[in-house]
């Protein structure tokens, strides 16, 4: 998430007028941080904990992503919990609630508008 936040700064050259006289011509789409998120989601307990934290979900869904597949993967895994006695996962309520609240707060970013 921090990597994505830092790389996103290149899309906003107007916030750094002392660095860029005009829009930079070397913008590189960052799809790597989405892949990192996807990998991090394989630790489901940690993903459950992170997505239950409203500060984290606010940062996660308040971003623009070059490719949202990694975010979707992380959210999908982190909002699911699989108790040892069950073969299939069930929705993990605290994470689902925090994610949907953040999605409502960042409706424009999620919709890409």
């Amino acid at each position: 998430l921090t990597v994505q936040e830092r790389s996103s700064e290149q899309y906003r050259p107007d916030t750094f007028p002392w660095v860029f006289d005009s829009a930079p011509d070397d913008i590189v789409e960052n799809t790597g941080s989405g892949g990192l998120l996807s990998g991090a989601g394989r630790n489901q307990d940690t993903a459950n904990d992170l997505l239950s934290d409203s500060d984290f979900t606010d940062r996660l869904l308040g971003r623009q992503w070059g490719d949202s597949a990694g975010v979707a993967d992380f959210v999908g895994r982190g909002t699911t919990h699989r108790p040892p006695e069950l073969d299939n996962g069930v929705v993990y309520g605290p994470a689902r609630d925090a994610v949907l609240a953040a999605a409502d707060d960042h409706e424009d970013q999620v919709a890409g508008s």
Binding site: W65, A69, T79, Q109, V110, A111
Partner: peptide, 15 residues
């Protein structure tokens, strides 16, 4: 930037 994959997951959670 559109986020179709993310929207699909969120729609699933809302359901």
């Amino acid at each position: 930037v559109d986020h179709p994959e993310l929207r699909d997951v969120l729609d699933g959670l809302r359901d």
